[in-house]
Design a protein around this nucleic acid. Structure first.
Lengths: 194, 194
DNA sequence: CGCGACGTTGATTTGCCTCAACGATTGTGG
DNA sequence: CCACAATCGTTGAGGCAAATCAACGTCGCG
């Protein structure tokens, strides 16, 4: 399969474009191949890009004052990833993104996104909807954080990301749920005993 | 001030439209006047609208299995409110929205939004950006929830919503922060003693 | 004025964190 | 391919922050 073809068929699979539009889009995306532990985005760097995951797994995390890591997002195939707070305003990242399973991603700059929005309104509609979906899932996460016990959060997580458990370490899950590895370990034990 | 004029000047203050576009927009918005304790959206109802707050204060909350309320969002002037998870998919609300300070809002349906997006691309751009901003602030809230102590969450809240304290009860703030009213009371005491 | 809603304070319980030690698993170099 | 080290996960003991339960002060509205 041609790399460029796969941008259109992977990312924009439900939209039909003219040949001219396809060329415009293809020219703005760049393919990156990542190995486990590669860092895609570092705290303090100006964020000019977002990334589409074609395969593999990445995570966004935040390091607090006491040095603790807090996982904000996992991204697998068909998800987009960036430090969006910084991306939208082209400011400096407070988060770090690294690769936790060998991955292939498409990179696109904010500037190029914006010219695509103007040139091809369908692209803007597509990303508006993506954004709506992402917003809704963050809202669900906030509800879950407020109303669920740690055990329920863990089982919800497993249900939401059913295939992710092979890729991520338990301490990543713990830092996503907001508990220590020890607590997660005890919860896993408790669940397996039933 | 004419009600219809204020839709354009309130909501879309940074965009210039043609006279024809203004008419199209105006026809799709409906003004509602709300009194304290009025319910704008009820759990279980199909969500077909979103609302722009022109004045006053509303809150979105979720009631869990044990009957506890969890505040997901406060909305004051210039904010939009709805159960967005349900709004985007035109499905049933899991949340309730009520008025906590006499308010005036503009109501618009999802269907009308979508025709506006097609007829006036500037409107789609405007809402895409709104969405990006909202997404970013939810992401910040998740980071805060994961990394801050309850006391820090409270002071962040007070800084983020500096003028809201007159409108909202402490037990609303507690349910937003994810603590009991007793805990919030003790934290407020501790802060005031310094 | 009186009642209900709201906020505060105290005593006790509980879930999670911290610190510490020890298995298990994974990865790497000889 | 094995041996060993590093990383990761588990278990235990003790402490702390917040929840729970209960009682009482205070404010605002009808």
């Amino acid at each position: 399969m041609n790399i460029q073809e796969s941008i259109i068929s992977d990312i924009f699979k439900d939209i039909s474009f003219s040949q001219e539009e396809i060329v415009k889009i293809e020219n703005k995306f760049e393919k990156l191949v990542l190995k486990k532990k590669d860092v895609l985005l570092k705290t303090g760097n100006t964020v000019r890009h977002q990334y589409y995951i074609s395969s593999g797994c990445l995570r966004t995390y935040f390091v607090d004052n006491s040095g603790k890591e807090h996982t904000v997002q996992f991204a697998i195939k068909d998800w987009w990833i960036s430090d969006y707070t910084a991306f939208f305003t082209t400011s400096k990242a407070v988060m770090t993104i690294d690769c936790i399973q060998d991955a292939s991603v498409y990179k696109v700059s904010k500037m190029d996104m914006e010219s695509l929005y103007i040139e091809i309104p369908q692209v803007e509609t597509f990303f508006r909807k993506k954004m709506e979906f992402a917003f809704a899932s963050f809202q669900k996460r906030i509800i879950g954080n407020l109303s669920q016990s740690t055990k329920d959060k863990y089982t919800s997580f497993i249900n939401t990301y059913p295939n992710i458990e092979q890729s991520v370490k338990n301490y990543h899950i713990a830092s996503y749920l907001g508990v220590t590895t020890e607590t997660l370990s005890r919860i896993r034990k408790e669940i397996s005993q039933k």
